[in-house]
Amino acid sequence: MTSHAKGDWPPAVEVLNENGASDIVLLCEHASNHIPSEYRGLGLEARELQRHIAWDIGAAGVTRLVSRALDAPAFLGGYSRLLIDVNRPLGAESSIPVRSEATDIPGNIGIDADEKARRAKIMFTPFHEKVAAHLDRRAKAGRPTRLVTIHSFTPVFLGEKRPWHAGVLYAEAREFGEAILSGLRKDPALNAAANEPYVIARDGDYAIPVHGDDRGIPAVLIEIRQDLVSDEDGIQEWADRLVNALPPLNAGTG
């Protein structure tokens, strides 16, 4: 295995404010578009790696600001979702995609089980072990916890325009999700919807089912349309929106 030079092989997870006082725990699985040089961009041109297929544009910036504003712990992924998606179950078709949206990913075509296991060991497993250990410590200490994962989505997907500014996705945490939506909808100009543009499904999501619902932790996934968080002003605006929309503990947490 290639030696893990610090810059080319960053940690699988960047942890911010691990001892923060908030009951909110933030995840940003698609924070980075980093691909180590040995992968040669997975055969893609550099401009392709700036697109949504490689990461969630703006999501990391929003996560950092929300973490700071709430004094909340945050866990950010260190590698591009194209290498292995840490918000997909291992073995799922979308875990190591050979095609993303309408783009083929040459470096993922025909890879063997050893390479899949290597990526899981370096990038996927350490991320989730760190999150799980943090949640275990909180549970042992009797600390209340609500989980919020932050993502962004494309304004157009395979030719279809998406009208929403934001979506709040949930499975079992309906009360928490609807409370956040109510907060966002205080701005009448905002088109915010439940379970759009995706839905939570155990075969296509990881953090919400495993770290949230399976533990009995209220857990939601926030989707922000990426053209709204493509610059610093937009990132700040949406961080402020989320901070203001999150309900106080015990108000919309079930």
Score class of each variant (00 low, 15 high):
residue 126 P to D: 06
residue 167 G to I: 10
residue 87 N to V: 15
residue 73 P to D: 05
residue 105 I to H: 03
residue 98 V to F: 03
residue 180 I to G: 02
residue 176 F to Y: 13
residue 106 P to A: 07
residue 135 L to D: 02
residue 150 I to G: 01
residue 132 A to K: 13
residue 94 S to K: 13
residue 199 V to F: 11
residue 109 I to N: 05
residue 184 L to A: 04
residue 122 I to C: 10
residue 106 P to K: 09
residue 172 E to A: 15
residue 175 E to K: 05
residue 123 M to Q: 13
residue 200 I to P: 03
residue 64 R to P: 02
residue 105 I to G: 01
residue 165 H to P: 10
residue 143 R to A: 14
residue 164 W to C: 02
residue 139 A to K: 15
residue 199 V to M: 08
residue 93 E to M: 08
residue 105 I to L: 00
residue 134 H to N: 02
residue 182 S to C: 08
residue 159 G to W: 09
residue 134 H to G: 07
residue 193 A to E: 15
residue 132 A to Y: 04
residue 97 P to N: 07
residue 119 R to Q: 07
residue 78 G to C: 04
residue 188 P to M: 10
residue 198 Y to G: 05
residue 129 E to K: 14
residue 165 H to M: 12
residue 66 V to K: 00
residue 150 I to S: 04
residue 184 L to N: 01
residue 191 N to H: 14
residue 197 P to W: 04
residue 78 G to S: 00
residue 152 S to A: 11
residue 149 T to L: 00
residue 70 L to T: 00
residue 86 V to G: 02
residue 198 Y to A: 03
residue 107 G to R: 05
residue 174 R to L: 03
residue 130 K to D: 02
residue 129 E to T: 11
residue 137 R to M: 06
residue 169 L to H: 10
residue 90 L to A: 07
residue 171 A to N: 15
residue 143 R to L: 15
residue 137 R to T: 09
residue 70 L to R: 08
residue 137 R to E: 13
residue 169 L to C: 04
